[in-house]
Design a protein around this nucleic acid. Structure first.
Length: 198
DNA sequence: TCATTAAAGTTAT
DNA sequence: ATAACTTTAATGA
């Protein structure tokens, strides 16, 4: 949880519901709100010239989205799209800044979240730049698995479709699938009824 | 080597 | 049923 929901509510936050594929904001929009996910899952993405999707990140309950751009005077460089039914809290930018001005604790919480996102971006950027498909996919899985305590092999079920994994690593689905098959041969992961265990 | 295209099988809604 | 996802194969950069 980035910020206690009660604090946000008492500051005047409102809840908005979104259906799958609905946009919370779009590339080019100007940021006006601080968003925090109550329930559901959101993805941040871009579409290239050919219309191919690149997923920047998946965000779920307790996380905020788009906050990184709130502090500068720039339009959003990506879209935020609901993946599942979502209930998202939003607080106007100015009210949000007032809150932060009054509370060093909230500033720290937001900074901490920002820091985490930056860390993820850095890890993923290292992976994606000029690496082999298996290294990219392994990097993604290592990151995802790092949040669970059990480090033993095959103990983590990747909560993503192959399509999503491909979009997160900049690969095409077919390459992702073939590479994953190859990684199974190499005992890097296991596949059980289409689910990837890592 | 990987992306792209096409075609077909599978799963979820 | 229909859409979304998974898989395989052929082709080309």
């Amino acid at each position: 949880m980035v910020i206690d929901e009660n604090i946000l509510f008492s500051a005047g936050a409102e809840i908005k519901e979104y259906n799958p594929t609905e946009n919370i904001f779009c590339e080019g929009d100007n940021p006006h709100y601080y968003y925090q996910i109550i329930t559901g899952e959101v993805k941040l993405n871009n579409y290239n010239e050919e219309g191919k999707e690149f997923i920047q990140n998946f965000l779920s309950a307790g996380q905020s989205c788009g906050e990184s751009i709130l502090f500068i005077d720039k339009p959003y460089p990506m879209n935020a799209e609901a993946v599942t039914d979502c209930s998202i809290l939003r607080l106007h930018k100015s009210t949000f800044f007032n809150l932060l001005n009054k509370s060093p604790k909230l500033c720290m919480e937001v900074s901490s979240f920002l820091s985490q996102r930056l860390y993820y971006k850095f890890i993923m950027m290292m992976n994606i730049s000029s690496q082999s498909p298996s290294t990219r996919l392994k990097g993604l899985m290592d990151y995802l698995k790092s949040f669970q305590d059990d480090e033993s092999p095959y103990s983590f079920m990747i909560p993503l479709t192959r399509q999503q994994m491909a979009s997160l690593t900049g690969l095409c689905v077919e390459t992702a699938i073939r590479t994953i098959k190859h990684m199974e041969k190499d005992k890097i992961l296991k596949i059980e009824n289409r689910k990837i265990l890592y």
